[in-house]
Design a protein around this nucleic acid. Structure first.
Length: 160
DNA sequence: GCCAACGTTGGC
DNA sequence: GCCAACGTTGGC
């Protein structure tokens, strides 16, 4: 097994009404807390590295799609909102001694020439295998370099 | 606002 | 450890 030194690529979903790519641009860095799905957590905890690139996806939006590029800016650390009884994300099975949920920092990286809608992604036959289209409920998901590059290409073509 | 898809919970 | 019931996500 060879050591993987290449950047990994991801797609992370956020509802723009709650936290949009524009919000990330303004804030620069945000802690990606509130994820309560084990697969999504495991990607953040085990597989993400500082410098990985992220397609920032707007879900439940009009339209939904890829709004910009972000980058992973910290290793995973315990998600303190899971200990906070007043948080919407409180989980009584998670404690500071034995945290169940973890998250990473996500930072603004760059804007895209144009928004790439879910509809455009669906129409691109080369993107048929994207997790986005096959496990639509996963909020943190891996993307291949090829898929990432194709999205960027689509964004250039759609650009103004 | 509806509802399909799917992850999680809990009874057995 | 199975699986039905339930709750949530997210497109439309």
């Amino acid at each position: 097994m060879s050591k993987q030194e290449d950047t990994n690529y991801w797609l992370m979903k956020s509802e723009p009404d709650v936290f949009s790519f524009e919000d990330l641009m303004a804030k620069k860095t945000t802690f990606w807390d509130g994820v309560r799905n084990y697969m999504a957590r495991n990607y953040m905890m085990r597989d993400m590295k500082v410098g990985d690139l992220v397609l920032f996806y707007h879900s439940n939006a009009k339209p939904s799609g890829i709004a910009g590029i972000a980058t992973i800016s910290s290793e995973a650390r315990p998600d303190a909102s899971s200990f906070d009884k007043n948080s919407d994300y409180y989980d009584q099975k998670s404690t500071p001694d034995k945290p169940r949920w973890f998250a990473v920092d996500v930072s603004f990286y760059r804007t895209l020439p144009s928004f790439v809608s879910l509809d455009q992604v669906k129409k691109n036959k080369k993107l048929k295998k994207m997790v986005l289209l096959n496990n639509s409920r996963l909020s943190v998901q891996p993307v291949t370099k090829n898929e990432f590059d194709l999205i960027l290409e689509m964004s250039q073509l759609g650009g103004t």
